[in-house]
């Protein structure tokens, strides 16, 4: 059904355009000259550590906060200039944004009528997110996960071409996370633009095809998932061998960096596993293990954003190894 070409939303290029967007509160610049676009048909992950400016950027896209300078447009216009905003962009900014004694159904109905959306659509989105059976109950009794689902139902209410969710998997159980991943990927497959923020790469790498990574309000990377994975592989090789010191002396060369993690293991970068193996064979050194190290996307993300993380704690994974073989 998804593959039906008629279901694809026609579009001409990017759906969200953020151009030189800046937001300053007094001396504090929360969003700093940010420029990126979000394309339809894929899930785009909006990543950054806490306090990176993700929510502020999203609020400016929604027209809730006015940029200090720059622009944020949806389908070429400021959102407030669209006639019926819910049909253009559906957003979830805060899952707690419901009155605790109002039912999910009334919450959505009140929202729907503002944009001329029928109540049949309310029932439909409630079923979509699996809240149909509790629709008439007070939303104050909802769990965090049900609150997120209600927020997503509100985002889908206007059948929007763009879906923008701020930290939607927060508080969801594994089943809920799986559900939202499928939902967002399906929405993207229909040709919609899906823009999802998170501070956790591990969540996003399973659903997003493109990443916009910011830190300290600035753009760090605007990169496809494939390119990001390319950054993660082939950086170094873990080597264990019988005559380690001997091997190290033969591996040294231009651009080769050797770090010893412990007395029995070295981490070699600048030479790939095959080259290391060849040198070991040539020297008659028996290798005990030869493991090309592949960093996780999380590692790459942490490295990219390391400079911008607020309140950084020292992490035990900091490489404290002694440098034994760096070439000049």
């Amino acid at each position: 059904m998804w593959d039906d070409p008629k279901r694809v939303f026609p579009h001409d290029g990017s759906m969200i355009n953020v151009t030189n967007l800046t937001k300053a509160y007094g001396d504090t610049t929360v969003v700093d000259d940010l420029t990126f676009t979000v394309q339809p048909g894929i899930v785009t992950g909006f990543l950054g550590p806490n306090g990176a400016g993700k929510s502020t950027t999203m609020r400016m896209i929604l027209g809730l906060d006015a940029p200090t300078s720059g622009t944020a447009t949806v389908k070429g216009k400021a959102l407030t200039q669209h006639g019926r905003p819910l049909t253009v962009i559906g957003s979830l900014m805060d899952a707690g944004a419901v009155h605790p004694t109002r039912s999910a159904y009334d919450h959505l109905r009140a929202l729907a009528v503002t944009n001329g959306i029928s109540t049949a659509r309310v029932d439909h989105v409630l079923d979509t997110v699996g809240l149909g059976s509790v629709a008439k109950k007070r939303s104050g009794g909802f769990s965090l996960g049900m609150g997120q689902r209600l927020g997503i139902a509100a985002a889908l209410l206007g059948d929007p071409e763009v879906v923008m969710l701020d930290e939607p998997v927060n508080g969801l159980d594994p089943e809920g996370i799986l559900w939202i991943r499928h939902l967002l990927q399906d929405l993207a497959r229909e040709g919609r633009t899906v823009f999802v923020s998170s501070h956790l790469m591990s969540e996003m790498e399973l659903m997003a095809e493109h990443f916009v990574i910011i830190g300290g309000g600035r753009l760090i990377e605007d990169i496809t998932a494939d390119d990001m994975r390319a950054m993660a592989v082939g950086e170094s090789t873990l080597v264990r061998a019988d005559r380690l010191d001997d091997l190290v002396s033969h591996l040294r060369g231009d651009g080769v960096e050797i770090v010893s993690s412990d007395r029995e293991t070295i981490e070699v970068s600048g030479l790939d596993a095959a080259a290391i193996g060849r040198i070991a064979v040539d020297q008659g050194i028996a290798l005990r293990s030869l493991i090309p190290e592949s960093r996780t996307l999380e590692d790459v993300f942490m490295t990219l954003t390391a400079d911008s993380v607020q309140y950084q704690a020292s992490t035990p994974s900091d490489r404290s190894g002694e440098l034994v073989g760096a070439s000049q």
Binding site: R59, G63, L64, L79, T80, D94, G96, A97, V98, N115
Partner: peptide, 15 residues
């Protein structure tokens, strides 16, 4: 609506 954040939902929906 300000304390829950609902007001922002309303603003975003209405423009």
């Amino acid at each position: 609506e300000y304390s829950t954040g609902l007001i922002r939902t309303a603003f975003a929906a209405v423009g």
